[in-house]
C-alpha cells in the first residue's frame, strides 16, 4: 500500500488525525462462493479512518469497494482479519447487537436510494428514528426538520415517485442524518445524478456532517466529486493500493 500525505492541503484530515480512528481494519479478507467458483473480494485490507474524515473509495468495478464498506458497516461478515468501528468489533456482537449498533451509529446512502415508494418522504426519513422507538409524531416532526435542512421542507408529504433523482437522494441523505450517526457510508451517491445535482448532493452531505464531526465513507466512480474528499483510497483486486489526498495523485 502506498500512501501520499499532503498535510497542508488537507486541514480537515490533519484535524481528523488528532482523533481516535473511527474505523480500523487489519488484514481483512472476504471470499464469495466456494471451490472453483470462489472469488476473493478482499485480500488483506488495512485501513484506518480517523473520526470526522471524508474518505472516498475508488477503483474499477469488482475491485472490492462495496464489499469493504459492507464489512465496515457491519452488513456483511468478514472471513478473516480485524475490523472495528468506534472501537467495537462487529464479530464480538450478536446479530441483534450488530443491528442495534448499526441503527444507532451508522447511516446509509444507497446508489438506488432505496426509499420505500409507498411512504411519504417524511416517513422515509423518519424510519431510523421509528426503529429506535421514537414516537411516530416526534419522529415525523424531526424528519420534517431534517428535510427542510436539505431543501425539501415543502415536499414532506410527497411520495418518492413524485421527486427527481436528486431530490430522492436528498431524502436518502436526510434519512442517513436524522439519527445523528457517527459514521455514514455512501454507495455511489451521485452516480444516478447529473453533474450539477451531484455536486449539490455532495455539498449538502459534507456540510451536514462536517459540523458534527461525522465520518463519511463514499464509494464512487465519479471523479467530479473527488474534490470533496479528505483522502481518496484506491482499490484494485481486493486491496487498497494507494491512499492520496488529491485526485491528481491517483
Amino acid at each position: 500500500m502506498t500512501t501520499h500525505h499532503d498535510i497542508t492541503a488537507a486541514p480537515a484530515r490533519a484535524l481528523a488525525h488528532d482523533r481516535p480512528p473511527a474505523v480500523r481494519c487489519r488484514g481483512l479478507t472476504k471470499d464469495y462462493g466456494s471451490g472453483t467458483a470462489r472469488v476473493r473480494a478482499l485480500r488483506g485490507v488495512d485501513l484506518d479512518i480517523p473520526e470526522g474524515e471524508l474518505l472516498m473509495l475508488v477503483g474499477p468495478s469488482g475491485c472490492g469497494k462495496t464489499t469493504l464498506i459492507s464489512v465496515v458497516a457491519g452488513v456483511l461478515d468478514r472471513d478473516q482479519g480485524e475490523c472495528s468501528v468506534f472501537g467495537t468489533d462487529f464479530a464480538s456482537l450478536s446479530s441483534g447487537g450488530r443491528t442495534r449498533f448499526r441503527g444507532t451509529n451508522i447511516g446509509f446512502v444507497f446508489q438506488a436510494f432505496n426509499l420505500i415508494p409507498t411512504l411519504t418522504i417524511a416517513e422515509n426519513a423518519a424510519v431510523p428514528l421509528l426503529l429506535q422507538g421514537v414516537p411516530r409524531r416526534e419522529a415525523l416532526e424531526r424528519a420534517r426538520g431534517v428535510l427542510a435542512s436539505v431543501g425539501l421542507g415543502e415536499r414532506t408529504d410527497n411520495t418518492p415517485g413524485k421527486l427527481s433523482g436528486g431530490q430522492q437522494q436528498r431524502v436518502a441523505i436526510a434519512r442517513a442524518l436524522i439519527h445523528r450517526p457517527r459514521l455514514i457510508v455512501c454507495d455511489e451517491p451521485t452516480s444516478a445524478l447529473d453533474h450539477h445535482t451531484g455536486m449539490k448532493v455532495m455539498e449538502m452531505l459534507k456540510g451536514a456532517t462536517s459540523e458534527r464531526g461525522t465520518t463519511l465513507i463514499v464509494v464512487t466512480h465519479d471523479s467530479r466529486i473527488f474534490e470533496y474528499a479528505d483522502r481518496i483510497a484506491h482499490m484494485d483486486d481486493g486491496q487498497i493500493d494507494k491512499i492520496v489526498t488529491h485526485a491528481k495523485d491517483l
Binding site: 458497516a73 441503527g103 446509509f108 444507497f110 438506488a112 420505500i116 431510523p128 426503529l131
Partner: peptide, 18 residues
C-alpha cells in the same frame, strides 16, 4: 417485490424480529 426495501431497513437497523 419489497425485498430491497426490507434489506434497506435491515441495514438501517431493523432487527429480524422487527
Amino acid at each position: 417485490d419489497n425485498l430491497r426495501y426490507f434489506a434497506a431497513l435491515k441495514a438501517i437497523g431493523a432487527s429480524d424480529r422487527r
